[in-house]
Design a protein around this nucleic acid. Structure first.
Length: 200
DNA sequence: AGATAGATGCTCT
DNA sequence: GAGCATCTATCTG
């Protein structure tokens, strides 16, 4: 199977991600995603070639790519690629359809009270995903984490704009979200803010 | 609303 | 050693 990350991003919007564990089941309807594609995309983890971390992004498609960032957060992607060009779609936000209580317990301080998961690290922890889920097949019915595909949304309901939180290629408009959804992360420009130089 | 600082550790150069 | 596909609390207007 081959699917371009941009097409995958469209298809993911409105789809439901289900995560089962001993603690319970959480279902989240995706409302915001962000596409990354290829070794010529400076913002992609694949920019400098294949490494142990980004290995999953080379396929197969439909698997989960989970990575650790900023020393404390995990982010989750769905792998999508064409013709050996690696890629993935970052899951940024969604509405909690079931398991809101568990979501609250997993991240008590997050805004939204368990009804929404705004922000990739919040969404990932809401689903209880970590290192051990990296590479899982989301299409396998036996998998504890599954993607329940929904009919494609009408294009008119989909908006797109610049990516969030990346220092390179910010202008690439590959962030997609459902128009009017309450579960969309607030835009923040990428890269750390440099401290002002001392004036002598 | 917007800006900022701090938390914290993996990954690659 | 530098740089992160971030979040939250705590300011300032």
């Amino acid at each position: 199977m081959a699917i371009d990350p941009i097409d995958l991003a469209h298809r993911l919007l409105g789809s439901v991600l289900e995560s089962r564990s001993e603690q319970g089941t959480v279902r989240i309807r995706l409302s915001e995603v962000e596409a990354y594609r290829g070794q010529d995309d400076p913002a992609s983890h694949c920019y400098r070639g294949r490494t142990p971390r980004n290995d999953v992004m080379w396929g197969p498609a439909g698997h989960l790519y989970v990575y650790f960032v900023y020393g404390m957060h995990f982010c989750a992607n769905v792998v999508g690629l064409t013709d050996g060009v690696p890629g993935a779609v970052l899951l940024r936000a969604g509405e909690v359809l079931s398991g809101a209580e568990l979501v609250r317990a997993r991240r008590p301080t997050a805004r939204g009270g368990g009804a929404v998961a705004r922000g990739p690290a919040i969404l990932t922890s809401a689903l209880g995903l970590g290192r051990e889920h990296n590479g899982m097949d989301l299409v396998d019915p036996e998998s504890p984490v599954r993607l329940l595909a929904a009919p494609a949304l009408p294009r008119a309901q989909i908006r797109n704009g610049p990516r969030v939180g990346v220092a390179a290629a910010v202008e690439v408009p590959w962030r997609f979200w459902i128009d009017g959804s309450p579960a969309v992360s607030t835009y923040r420009r990428g890269g750390r803010v440099r401290p002002r130089e001392e004036v002598v």
